[in-house]
């Protein structure tokens, strides 16, 4: 392959982009197609089902400043997390195989912390979890993320 051939191919590519561009709405249609194709089947979402910030303080069982978050995955397992200052503790429940599972805590500011689980599914992370945070659970190829939660 010569440089001249490559340059001519580049020119041809630019020409085709001009001569026969995709219809204006094509990309938007395809984004909608992918979104509607229920990516959640494979790309699971951790859905926030309970948040101590939404509950009367008295029900938080004397946890004081701690923030409790409960997420459900569509597959049936769940993640509980307690955020207390720079300590984030939690547990994955109803997950059959805990081996190789990793939990990642991220802040919208770009910091992230990843840890494994102990034999009963507990994890503990020392992290400055402030601002917007989210959890991601990886099990081999399967990944489930929560939406961002304001702390």
């Amino acid at each position: 392959m010569t440089t001249g051939d490559n340059r001519l191919l580049d020119d041809l590519r630019d020409m085709w982009r001009l001569v026969d561009p995709p219809p204006p709405g094509l990309t938007a249609t395809m984004i909608a197609t992918v979104a509607a194709a229920d990516l959640d089947d494979e790309w699971e979402l951790l859905v926030l089902v309970r948040d101590s910030a939404d509950e009367p303080a008295a029900q938080v069982r004397g946890l004081g400043t701690a923030r409790m978050l409960y997420f459900n995955a569509a597959e049936g397992w769940s993640l509980e997390a307690e955020i207390d200052g720079d300590q984030v503790r939690g547990q994955l429940l109803d997950l059959d195989d805990l081996s190789g599972v990793e939990v990642t805590l991220e802040t919208a500011a770009g910091e992230s912390w990843t840890t494994g689980l102990d034999e009963v599914g507990f994890f503990s992370i020392q992290a400055e979890a402030t601002g917007s945070i989210r959890f991601t659970v990886r099990r081999g190829q399967a990944v489930a993320s929560s939406r961002w939660v304001e702390i």
């Binding site: 590519r13 094509l26 990309t27």
Partner: peptide, 14 residues
């Protein structure tokens, strides 16, 4: 994934 679709849809068109 939206960025992926935006980047590749025009290429797939051609």
């Amino acid at each position: 994934v939206d960025d992926l679709v935006s980047a590749m849809t025009p290429v797939l068109w051609h």
